[in-house]
């Protein structure tokens, strides 16, 4: 089933993402086929429709600040997928700076600083280490208010990672056949700025 995923999704995260069980892959993959949509598989995506609702239904402006921090126990960088998701709100990314630091005996941390067409400014960060519990935190601030989400909030001292919210993934997916311009622009910008680790 994985082989039927679009090329840009069928990547090492599918193979390496240790937070996913085989059953989840099957379930998600089945829904990919039935929904004919392209989307990322990271958890925490239930935050995206909630923020989307503020943009759509409460007309929050797209000129603000988004801070997003993923903690992963797998090697994959979600940068491309997350920027793609952001293009739906903020248009194309215009500037991107990426830096990372990694220790032999510790986590790899990546910081991406992004400015979008809408003037939204984004700090996207990833902490990746096999010994960390996966989590996703995000905060959007604009003139209308602040939206905060933390996937770890319901837990304390619980090491089990939260599960992927498939409904949210599908809700927020790109319909197949759309988003090519955005995908090319995002890929080009990332490859210009980052090199090998994407």
């Amino acid at each position: 089933m994985v082989s039927k995923l679009p090329e840009w999704m069928d990547r090492k995260r599918i193979r390496e993402n240790k937070i996913q069980e085989e059953a989840s892959y099957a379930s998600v993959s089945a829904q990919i086929e039935s929904s004919d949509r392209l989307f990322s598989l990271g958890f925490g995506e239930q935050a995206f429709p909630a923020l989307d609702q503020l943009f759509q239904e409460e007309s929050w402006s797209r000129n603000g600040v988004l801070r997003m921090h993923r903690i992963e126990n797998a090697a994959h960088s979600w940068l491309e997928e997350d920027i793609m998701m952001m293009t739906r709100w903020f248009g194309l990314p215009e500037r991107l700076h990426v830096t990372e630091n990694m220790k032999d005996n510790g986590p790899r941390h990546i910081i991406a600083l992004i400015r979008f067409e809408s003037l939204a400014a984004v700090h996207w960060e990833l902490t990746a280490s096999v010994d960390r519990t996966a989590a996703m935190k995000m905060e959007w601030s604009s003139m209308e208010g602040t939206f905060q989400y933390n996937s770890s909030e319901p837990y304390s001292g619980v090491s089990a990672a939260p599960e992927v919210d498939i409904a949210s993934c599908i809700h927020f997916a790109w319909p197949a056949g759309e988003g090519f311009k955005e995908r090319e622009a995002v890929r080009q910008l990332i490859s210009e700025r980052t090199g090998e680790w994407t």
Partner: peptide, 28 residues
């Protein structure tokens, strides 16, 4: 990246900074 995004008039009200320290530590 910095600018005026929270309704201030004629002055910056936002700044996101990425810092790289001499010993390799990175910061946001």
């Amino acid at each position: 990246e910095w600018g005026t995004q929270f309704g201030s008039d004629g002055i910056d009200d936002m700044g996101l900074l990425t810092l790289i320290f001499e010993d390799g530590i990175i910061a946001s």
